[in-house]
């Protein structure tokens, strides 16, 4: 990781050289809207927070569009997380006394979005094992039987998922 001030300088150059172009590109893709402007902002924010080495970037525009596309995919996933969570919550609150506070809901949604970022990058078995064990309290042997793998393998999946979620939650 380059020293923070150098990284900032590089992002600054990238921004001043290409942000107009990126905006135009996104306008064509999404229709000119607030969404396009918003996405330009978030694309640069993501690059800034990533701390990736930008020296010798040969195709800066391809790099920008890839980052923007990933961002769009993440956003779509976050919307699904939000929608499904609130759907279930609405079902629950219909029968439950006392809905969770708005702050608690927003915190839960934030955590779920970060977890979804991590889990989607894992093999299906690893994310399934994580959900079954840590969210649904399923035992490790039961998960092994369900996935048709050894208990030792389930433990490997769980460790892998823990590490991946840890990175997503602390980044």
């Amino acid at each position: 990781m380059p020293p923070p001030d150098i990284h900032c300088k590089q992002v600054e150059t990238l921004y001043s050289d290409h942000h107009r172009w990126l905006r135009g590109w996104l306008c064509k893709k999404l229709g000119c809207s607030e969404q396009a402007a918003d996405l330009v902002h978030d694309t640069f924010l993501r690059i800034l927070n990533s701390g990736e080495v930008l020296t010798g970037l040969t195709k800066p525009r391809a790099y920008l569009t890839t980052t923007a596309k990933r961002l769009l995919i993440d956003r779509a996933r976050h919307r699904r997380v939000e929608q499904s969570y609130l759907d279930e919550l609405a079902l629950m609150t219909a029968t439950m006394e006392g809905a969770p506070s708005p702050e608690a809901i927003l915190m839960a949604l934030e955590a779920l979005k970060q977890l979804s970022d991590a889990l989607q990058s894992l093999p299906a078995n690893a994310s399934e094992a994580f959900l079954q064990h840590y969210l649904l309290d399923e035992t490790q042997p039961a998960i092994a039987a369900r996935l048709g793998v050894s208990v030792r393998m389930v433990q490997k999946y769980l460790a892998q998922a823990l590490l991946c979620c840890h990175r997503a939650l602390t980044d």
Partner: peptide
């Protein structure tokens, strides 16, 4: 109740 969180992550995946 883990269902809302489970549904959300299932939908994401």
């Amino acid at each position: 109740n883990p269902e809302p969180a489970h549904a959300a992550l299932k939908a994401a995946l």
